[in-house]
Amino acid sequence: MSSKQLNMVQAINSTLDMLMKEDDSIILLGEDIGKDGGVFRVTEGLQAKYGAERVMDTPLVELGIVGMAIGMALAGLKPVPEIQFQDFIFTAFDQIVNQAAKMRYRSGGEYNVPMVLRTPYGGGIRGGLYHSQSGEAYFAHTAGLTVLSPSNPYDAKGLLISAMKSKDPVIFLEPKKLYRSIKSDVPDEKYSIPLGKAALVHEGNGMTFVTYGSMVPTVVNTVVKHSIDADVIDLRTIMPYDGETILNSVKKTGKLIIVHEAPRTLGMGAEISAFISERAVDYLQAPILRVCGPDIPFPYKLEEYYMPNEERILKAINRVQEFR
């Protein structure tokens, strides 16, 4: 079985290429994704290969990109709209929340919207307020959407393949900080990672970390560097998240720390914390802690202070370890 060392940009690009080759119903649409290959080059070379009809450089209108993709999906195509930065998605929010997400339910199952909306999210590239946001909770809060975020090139490919098989709208959040910063061995052939299944990326007994997307390497590196005896769960699917894996781990360790870049209040950490409180309060040996972005807009110059880092994770580790 052959494979290649790829970064996340290359993994997504080659996966789209592979899928487009075998299925002419796949249409990519977005701003600057064709000739320019996308501002992060994720769609580089695809327009040259598949033509401007299938890799569309759209006018600058996010609600139009998503709205158009919804109509394509309803007409039997498999659109993959790209929103250049997740921060720009909000004019399309109505289309996502009130059209795509509710179509199957409101039509009694007559209509559905198989669409994979790709968008880079999160900080770490010094993008300031409008090129750094982590809006996963907005989408996770909407019934009808599936929300994914890969944390490495291997998962990016496997999750994208699963997303493309889905008959419902998927929000595919690409952690832009990890686009080129890590490589992994990516098999050439097609494989899929099931939706709704987390990965246990580090095993231990002392505590449980739940994280996803860009924070996975930060958490794993901290745990490894300081020889922390911990389970690290990479959600991969944010919604519907893998409650069973989290629950089993917390029952084993009795301690839970959730790490994400998005603001703390009402983020995924709040949900997972409530989930564990409802089901495993008897197992808990320490308070559930969250290490998250603060509830302020994402800053430009001082972004290091915004992103959860080794130091803040260690602080949380110490607190749960020392709790009596």
């Binding site: 609600l63 998503v66 709205g67 158009m68 993709a69 919804i70 109509g71 999906a73 007409a75």
Partner: peptide, 9 residues
């Protein structure tokens, strides 16, 4: 907007 997508298809 979805109507335009259907027409594109």
């Amino acid at each position: 907007p979805p109507a335009t997508g259907a027409a594109y298809a």
